[in-house]
Design a protein around this nucleic acid. Structure first.
Length: 418
DNA sequence: TCTGGGGTCCTAGGACCC
DNA sequence: TCTGGGGTCCTAGGACCC
C-alpha cells in the first residue's frame, strides 16, 4: 500500500501561511525571472489562468480580478517543504521525498483512510500547508488517487482507492493523459489509437504497449492494474548531472557581464557538487539568445571540456568555464540565458588524479571550500563570494514581487501586532 | 520590456572487442 | 544462396517528471 501526499498549490499555500489576507483571493506565483505562472490558487484556476501562462499575457486579468502576484521565493518554499517533510517523516516508517511538494509514504498498520486523515490534519496544524492524500496499492494509482482527492470536495482531501469497489468507473473517469508517466506525446499517440481513459490504458495489450511506450510504459500499465512495479526510493542517489542556469533580467551583450554570470552559476553548481560529496570530470557551458524575439539575430552554442582530474574546487571550475565561454562567445548578440553543467560526476574519494597534471584537488583546496561552504550556510549565501561573480550583477533575474524569507532570515521574520 | 529551471530513464545504432 | 556470434560502451534523441 502506498500513499502520495501532495501539497495543494504549494507555492501559493506557502505565501498564504504568512499573509492570511490572501485567503479566498486569487493568487499566482511566477517562475524565475517573473516569467510564467507556475502556481495558482483555486480561485485563479477558476478564472481560467493556465499553468505556464506568460506573465505579460496576464496583466489585464490581474488588474481586473485583483489577483495577488508573487515572484518565486525558493528560500521560503524550500524551508516550508523541509518542515512538511519532517512532519511526514514522523507519521510513516518509510518515506520517499519525490519533489518539493510531494512524498510517497507507506501508511502504518492503522486503518488507511483514518491514517490519511491524520496526516492531513497534522501537516495542516503544524505547518499551515493543506495537503491531499491518495492511497492505493501502487504508486501510479496513489498519484491518481491524490488528484481525485483534490477534485472531489466530498472526500475532504483523502482518497483511498482500496476502499472503492467501483475502480473501473473511477479509471473510466480519468484521462489516460493524467496518468503518471503519460505525457503529451504518449497521450496523443494513445488517443490516435482510441485509448482515451485510464481504464482503456490499463486494459491495453502488453505487447502493443511495450512496443509503443517501451518498458517504462508497460510498467505504468501494470501499476494501473494494481501490480507494483515502481518501489519506494528512500535513499535518492547522488545526481548524475548538475545544471545551474538562469535567464537574465535583461538582455546581456557585454562579454564581461556574461563572464560574471557564468562564474556565479559555476559557484552555485560547485556548491551542489560538494553538497553531495562529488566532483565533476566534465564541464559544459552554454549561452543562448532569446528565441522568442524572432526579429533579433539568434545564436546559441555550447562547449564541453573534460578535466584532467575530477574537481569540485570552485576556482578551478570557474577558470575552466570562463575559458569555455571565451570559445563560444560571439560579439553582437543579445544574450538571454547562460548555464553551466557538470557531468561525469564521481564521489570525491573515487576521483582519479592525473599523474601528469599539477591541477588537482588537494586536502588544502577541499578544506578551503569546506570553510567557505560553512560560512555561507551559517551567514547566508554569498557572504563569501568570488570576485569574478561581480558585485552589482545587473544581469540578475527580475523578482519584482518577492515576499519575505519569513522563516530563514531574522530581519524578515513576521511581526505580530497586538 | 515581456515566455523557468531543474532532473531521470530508455532505446537504437555505431564503434569496438575477442 | 549461403560471409559468426556474442558482448560492452558510448552517444544522441526522445520520452517523462516536478
Amino acid at each position: 500500500m502506498y500513499a502520495l501526499v501532495d501539497c495543494n498549490n504549494f507555492y501559493v499555500s506557502c505565501e498564504r501561511v504568512f499573509d492570511p489576507s490572501l485567503r479566498n483571493r486569487p493568487v499566482v506565483v511566477l517562475s524565475n525571472n517573473d516569467g510564467n505562472a507556475v502556481a495558482r490558487s483555486n480561485e485563479a484556476k477558476e478564472l481560467g489562468i493556465p499553468f505556464g501562462a506568460p506573465f505579460h499575457s496576464l496583466k489585464g486579468r490581474i488588474r481586473e480580478h485583483n489577483i495577488a502576484v508573487f515572484s518565486s521565493n525558493y528560500t521560503l518554499y524550500g524551508d516550508m517543504s523541509r518542515r512538511v517533510m519532517d512532519v511526514l517523516g514522523g507519521l510513516s516508517p518509510e518515506m520517499e521525498i519525490y519533489s518539493i511538494d510531494e512524498a510517497f509514504l507507506r501508511p502504518g498498520r492503522r486503518r488507511h483512510s483514518e491514517w490519511g486523515r491524520e496526516v492531513r490534519e497534522t501537516v495542516l496544524q503544524w505547518t499551515g500547508i493543506p495537503v491531499s492524500v491518495g492511497l492505493a496499492p501502487t504508486k501510479t494509482l496513489a498519484k491518481l488517487a491524490s488528484r481525485l482527492a483534490k477534485k472531489d470536495p466530498a472526500c475532504c482531501g483523502v482518497f483511498n482507492m482500496d476502499a472503492r469497489p467501483d475502480i473501473d468507473s473511477i479509471l473510466d473517469g480519468a484521462d489516460a493523459g493524467d496518468v503518471w508517466g503519460v505525457g503529451r506525446q504518449y497521450s496523443d499517440l494513445l488517443r490516435r489509437h482510441g485509448i482515451c481513459s485510464a481504464r482503456q490504458l490499463r486494459d491495453a495489450p502488453d505487447r502493443w504497449v511495450k512496443k509503443k511506450m517501451t518498458i517504462t510504459g508497460l510498467r505504468t500499465v501494470y501499476e494501473l492494474r494494481g501490480v507494483p512495479c515502481i518501489s519506494l526510493d528512500e535513499m535518492p542517489g547522488t545526481k548524475k548531472a548538475i545544471v545551474s542556469s538562469r535567464s537574465f533580467g535583461r538582455p546581456v551583450t557585454d562579454e564581461a557581464e556574461l563572464r560574471e554570470a557564468v562564474a556565479a552559476y559555476v559557484t552555485r553548481g560547485a556548491e551542489k557538487l560538494r553538497g553531495q560529496g562529488s566532483a565533476a570530470s566534465c564541464v559544459t557551458v552554454f549561452i543562448t539568445t532569446n528565441p522568442f524575439r524572432k526579429e533579433d539575430p539568434q545564436y546559441s552554442n555550447s562547449v564541453s571540456y573534460s578535466l584532467p582530474s575530477p574537481s569540485s574546487y570552485t576556482p578551478r571550475l570557474i577558470h575552466c568555464a570562463l575559458r569555455l565561454l571565451g570559445v563560444i562567445f560571439r560579439q553582437g548578440y543579445s544574450y538571454k540565458k547562460a548555464g553551466v553543467m557538470f557531468t561525469g560526476i564521481v564521489p570525491v574519494e573515487d576521483a582519479q588524479p592525473d599523474l601528469f597534471s599539477r591541477h588537482r584537488d588537494t586536502e588544502k583546496t577541499r578544506s578551503l571550500m569546506s570553510t567557505v561552504d560553512h560560512v555561507n550556510a551559517a551567514m547566508g549565501r554569498g557572504t563569501i563570494s568570488f570576485a569574478s561573480e561581480g558585485r552589482t550583477r545587473p544581469w540578475q533575474m527580475r523578482r519584482a514581487f518577492l515576499s519575505s524569507r519569513y522563516t530563514t532570515h531574522w530581519k524578515e521574520i513576521p511581526v505580530v501586532r497586538a
